[in-house]
Computed example of a mutant assay.
Amino acid sequence: MASTITVFDHLKIPLEKILEATNNFDDKNVIGEGGFGKVYKGKLLDYGILKNISARRLDRKHGQGDVEFWTEISALSVLNCPPHIVKMIGFCDENDEKIIITHYDIKGSLSMFLSDPTTFSLQDRFSACYYIASAINFIYGSEGSAFSFIHRNINSSTILLDENWKAKLSGFEFSIRSSSLARKNFNIHSEVIGTQGYIDPTYLKTGSVTHKSDVYSLGVVLFEILCGRHAYNPNEQDDKKFLAPLAKYHYEKGTLQDIIHPELWDQVASDSYAKMELEKISKIAYSCLNKERAQRPDMHEVVYELEKQVRLSFHIGSFIFSFIIVSYTSSSVHK
Rank of each mutant, 00 (worst) to 15 (best):
E224Q: 12
L181C: 09
L243N: 01
Y286M: 11
I106Y: 11
H334Q: 12
E307H: 13
Y198G: 01
V221K: 02
G254C: 09
E20D: 12
V192Y: 03
V302S: 02
Q267P: 01
E292R: 14
I100G: 03
S145D: 15
S3G: 05
D239E: 14
Y104N: 11
N233H: 04
P262I: 05
N155G: 02
G254T: 08
H151Q: 07
Y328R: 08
S148M: 09
H62R: 13
F323P: 00
L218F: 10
L306M: 09
A231D: 03
I136P: 01
E163R: 12
K12D: 08
Q295Y: 08
K212Y: 06
I139N: 00
L181V: 14
H10P: 02
D298Q: 14
E20F: 08
I49A: 06
R57T: 04
S77K: 07
K12N: 12
S148Y: 02
N235Y: 11
E252I: 10
Y273C: 09
I284G: 01
G254M: 09
N164K: 14
P245V: 05
F172Q: 01
F120V: 11
K241A: 02
V39H: 03
S287A: 15
S111A: 15
G35I: 09
A2F: 12
H250R: 14
F314I: 10
R60G: 08
H230D: 04
V220M: 08
D26T: 03
K28N: 13
D298L: 12
R60V: 11
V192L: 08
W70I: 06
S157C: 10
V221P: 07
I320W: 03
M88V: 10
E307I: 00
H250D: 04
V67Q: 14
H300Y: 14
H10K: 14
K335E: 11
E292W: 10
G197T: 05
K38P: 15
H230N: 11
E292F: 11
E305Q: 15
T329P: 01
D200C: 04
S208T: 05
H84K: 13
N95Y: 11
G108Y: 05
